[in-house]
């Protein structure tokens, strides 16, 4: 997993509430057995004017000029501003895969859906929750100032605006540790393999029906 320490990047505002993972990456692209290559189909139904199917040359497809990520001023954005409940719906991890593959590294919004939120951290993508008033101000500024950038420091847990104002955010220490170091949490969990084995052995004796029918 890619480490995340600091990021100074262009900001794109996606001004919609309840953006679901079906919108982030439509179902037809979930047929892939790979983890990569989803970026070109990120927000496919909003981003292109035609209907997307797997295997197309997306460079040749007609873009929807009204969609925020297609506007020249937001090209190269690595930070996406979002509204309430971003990432709701399906648990598909293809959503963070697509966001990351597109080039986004951080999301800033008022709230994220639970499963999506934890999926982001597994993929080097930092979702930042801020109070509504602060998010509203960021939306206003990003719309008003072309080339609007924000600076994120995960170690310090801060987002710094161009006017110097610093916004503090919360993140679980464990997730922060994994993201700062680009750590695979499976390796970390397996350090407790002995504990897991003991727990499992005890469970097998106390609640054998949970293990029944195994050969």
């Amino acid at each position: 997993m890619q480490k995340f320490k600091q990021l100074d990047a262009l900001v794109a505002p996606l001004d919609r509430a309840n953006v679901d993972t079906d919108a982030i990456i439509p179902k037809q692209f979930l047929k892939s057995i790979k983890r990569s290559g989803f970026g070109q189909n990120l927000f496919d139904e909003w981003r292109y004017l035609d209907h997307g199917e797997p295997g197309q040359n997306c460079a040749a497809r007609p873009l929807n000029p009204d969609f925020v990520l297609n506007q020249p001023r937001y090209r190269g954005a690595a930070i996406l501003l979002t509204r309430d409940n971003f990432g709701c719906g399906s648990s598909r991890e293809h959503a963070p895969w697509a966001l990351e593959d597109f080039g986004l590294r951080a999301l800033i919004g008022t709230s994220f859906a639970d499963i999506f939120y934890s999926n982001c951290f597994k993929n080097g993508l930092l979702p930042i929750r801020l109070p509504k008033a602060e998010v509203d101000a960021l939306f206003d500024q990003a719309a008003a100032v072309p080339g609007y950038r924000l600076s994120i420091n995960l170690e310090a847990q801060t987002v710094t605006r161009p006017d110097g104002k610093t916004l503090a955010f919360e993140v679980d220490p464990f997730r922060k540790f994994c993201l700062l170091n680009g750590l695979d949490d499976i390796g970390l969990s397996l350090r407790h393999a002995e504990r897991i084995r003991e727990f499992e052995a005890k469970r097998r004796i106390e609640q054998p029906w949970l293990f029944a029918q195994e050969s």
Binding site: R92, S118, N119, K122, I196
Partner: peptide
């Protein structure tokens, strides 16, 4: 419900 990284985590660790 869990994501695919968590599916892998459960496969590998049962946790």
């Amino acid at each position: 419900g869990i994501g695919t990284s968590e599916v892998e985590h459960v496969l590998a660790t049962q946790c």
